[in-house]
Nucleic acid binder design. Structure first.
Length: 229
DNA sequence: TTATGGATTAGCT
DNA sequence: GCTAATCCATAAA
């Protein structure tokens, strides 16, 4: 498949600032929908030594809020440990954990320092670096129907972006100097859906999963059940 | 020191 | 629909 067919030009992407993440994780989760996750420099002056395979970008279409120490489903419920210390630190930093012996998952720390809030990235829509994402995932792209295999699901999107704990845990997601950061390209979100979180056993009934209604990159089969608050 | 199980995915029935 | 894969933080001892 031609690379140009699916890649979208990103004119300007402005990084999100610390204050954006220093709010309630539910608010941050909702407002992260439509924003862009970037690996490398996109919409910024290209670095002379940077090659194309370091430039990845994808739109956020599904996230979950984790409310911190008092949320039993959150890793922060165990308190501030070596594993979860990023969640308890200042907002806007990457919390990466390893799960089921096979997958990494990406979160961003949210809310006031010490509270342990965070947002889990569950699905993205690829914009730039699609061939590189397919290579990282070991997926052969034969039709547009294969695209969701790249970034639809928390483990998948982490693999597509080459995210690991060693490489990315603690990374500042508000800085374009970071190899991983979050930005706004002016995209306006369509209708937002809210449903219970997926794959958890504790506090599983709480509606803390946010998604762009009708977006084909949203993971799972669970349909939207609640109107936005 | 050892035991347990999880914010998942792919592949097979 | 079922389950293996297979790491590591945490709890129990």
């Amino acid at each position: 498949m031609a690379k140009e067919a699916n890649e979208v030009a990103l004119a300007m992407v402005r990084p999100l600032d610390r204050a954006f993440f220093g709010r309630d994780p539910r608010r941050v989760a909702r407002e992260l929908l439509g924003k862009v996750l970037v690996r490398g420099r996109v919409g910024q002056p290209a670095h002379p030594r940077q090659n194309a395979c370091d430039r990845l970008a994808a739109r956020i279409v599904e996230v979950e809020a984790y409310l911190g120490e008092k949320d039993p489903a959150s890793h922060a419920a165990a308190g501030n440990t070596a594993r979860t210390s990023v969640l308890f630190g200042p907002p806007g930093f990457a919390y990466v954990y390893f799960i089921y012996g096979t997958h990494y998952c990406l979160n961003v720390s949210c809310g006031r320092e010490g509270k342990g809030g965070g947002v889990l990235f569950r699905a993205l829509e690829p914009l730039l670096g699609i061939e590189e994402m397919a290579a990282a995932r070991g997926v052969e792209l034969q039709s547009p129907r294969d695209l969701p295999k790249l970034t639809s699901g928390p483990g998948r999107l982490a693999q597509a972006f080459g995210i690991t704990r060693t490489r990315d845990n603690g990374c500042d997601l508000t800085s374009v100097q970071s190899s991983l950061w979050l930005g706004d390209d002016g995209f306006r979100s369509s209708k937002i859906g809210v449903t219970p979180r997926i794959g958890i056993t504790k506090a599983a009934e709480r509606p803390l999963r946010y998604l762009l209604e009708g977006n084909r990159f949203v993971s799972g089969r669970l349909a939207s059940t609640n109107a936005p608050r």
